[in-house]
Amino acid sequence: MAVFTPVNLDDVSQWIKQFPLGKALALKGIASGIENSNFFLSTEHGEYVLTIFENLSFEQLPFYLNLMRHLAERGVLVPAPVANERGELIVALHGKPASIVSKLEGSSQMAPQPVHCAAVGAMLAKMHLAASDFPLQQPNLRGLDWWNETTPQVLPFLSDDNAHLLRAEMHFQDAFAGCDTYRALQRGPVHADLFRNNVMFDGERLTGFFDFYFAGCDTWLFDVAVTVNDWCVDLASGVLDTGRVRAMLDAYHAVRPFTAAEQTAWQPMLRAAALRFWLSRLYDLHLPREAEMLTPHDPAHFERILRERIATPAPGLF
C-alpha cells in the first residue's frame, strides 16, 4: 500500500517490544496500493507485514483482524494477526491504529492461467462458508451507500459521455438492489477486493489471500464478481477470458453451489463490481490524499470493464 505515515526502524524497535517477535531487524515500505501504510518487517522470529491504518478507526478494525483470525482457524489460507502481550491485535503507532500479521510465502500471479483461477475460486468458496458463522457484523463500506455518496463528488470531473454512463449505471444498480432477486442472494463476510495482487502463489500452489481491509458483509456473489472482473479479463480490453471464467466458477461451484437467484443476478453483479472500482479509482484520482508513495490506479480500466459487461453477456455461473 502507499506510505502515508513515515515510519523508520528506530520507531518500530521500541514499539515492537510489546510483541513476542524479538528485535526488529529491517523495515521496508510497500509502494503498491492506496489505502493504508504497509511495511515489510523482518524480526528475529521471522517475516511479517506491519500496517498503519489511515482511514479505518480503532472501532472498525476488530472486524477485519478477527475475521482473519477466524478464517485462519478454519483452514482458510490468510495471514495470521499477531497479538501483543495484552492480547491486543490493534495497537497505536504514531497515534494511528496498527497491526502486525504474518507474511505469506510466494508472490502474486499477475498473468493467471485457468489453474490459478480454479485455485482462487475454490478458496473463495471455502472462505465464504468458513466465515458464515463469524459473529461480528460490519457492512461493506464501499457498497451501494458509498457509491451514492461518491457519484456527485466525481461527476464534475467527467466527460459528458462518462457522466451519462455513471448516472445511468447508478440508476440501474439502485433499482437492482431493491428487487426480490437481490434480496434472495446469500450473504456474509466477503473480501471485496480479491485482485491478483492480493493473492499469493508458489508456482501453481495458492499460499494465501491477504489485504482484508475492504472486507465487510455483503452478497457472496459480489465477491465472486469482483474476483472474476480482475482474474479472468484481458487487461487491455476488459473482455472476459471464457476459459479462466469457467475454471474459477466451476471450482467455486464445486465447493459452494451457486443458487438460482445468483444465476439471475450474475450479469447485474458483474456490472456492480465494475462500477465500484471505477468509482473508487475516479475518487482517488480526482480527490487524492497526500501520501509519500501514492500511485493512483487508472479509472479507465474499470470504465472499459463496465462498458463491456453492459454490452456483452458473461458466461453463466453454471
Results as ranks from 00 to 15, higher is better:
L25E: 14
A163W: 05
A168D: 15
L166S: 14
L50Q: 06
V76E: 07
A261S: 12
A83Q: 14
L67M: 07
A168Q: 15
L27T: 12
A72S: 11
V101C: 02
A236T: 14
S32K: 10
P81W: 13
K28R: 15
W15M: 03
I90Q: 06
M127T: 05
C179I: 09
H297N: 12
W278C: 03
H286A: 02
Q186P: 05
P79D: 10
Q113Y: 12
N197F: 01
L27Q: 11
G22D: 11
F318E: 13
V76F: 03
L41M: 08
C217I: 12
Q137G: 01
L67V: 04
D211Q: 00
G95Q: 08
V78F: 02
L306R: 06
H297M: 11
C232N: 06
F134I: 01
V49L: 02
H301L: 15
Q113C: 05
V120H: 01
M170G: 13
A163Q: 12
D174Y: 01
F212A: 00
T150S: 15
D234S: 14
S159W: 14
Q263N: 07
L279A: 08
A192N: 12
P112F: 09
P112C: 09
P296W: 11
G121R: 04
M127N: 02
S42N: 13
H297G: 04
M123R: 08
L104K: 03
N38P: 04
C117P: 05
H94P: 06
W147K: 00
L9P: 09
S237K: 01
W220N: 06
H45W: 04
R304L: 13
T181R: 01
L77V: 00
F172D: 15
T259K: 01
R304E: 12
E169I: 13
L27S: 12
P139Y: 12
L50A: 10
A98E: 11
A24G: 12
E308H: 07
V224N: 03
A314I: 00
A265H: 01
V12Q: 10
F53K: 03
M123T: 13
R281N: 05
N36A: 05
F302S: 08
Q18S: 14
M68R: 00
D193L: 05
R309S: 05
L89M: 14
E204K: 02
V49F: 02
P156G: 08
D180K: 03
L165C: 12
R167S: 11
L77E: 10
G46H: 08
T219V: 14
L158W: 11
L61E: 14
G178D: 15
P156T: 07
A225E: 06
F277T: 02
W266R: 00
S99V: 06
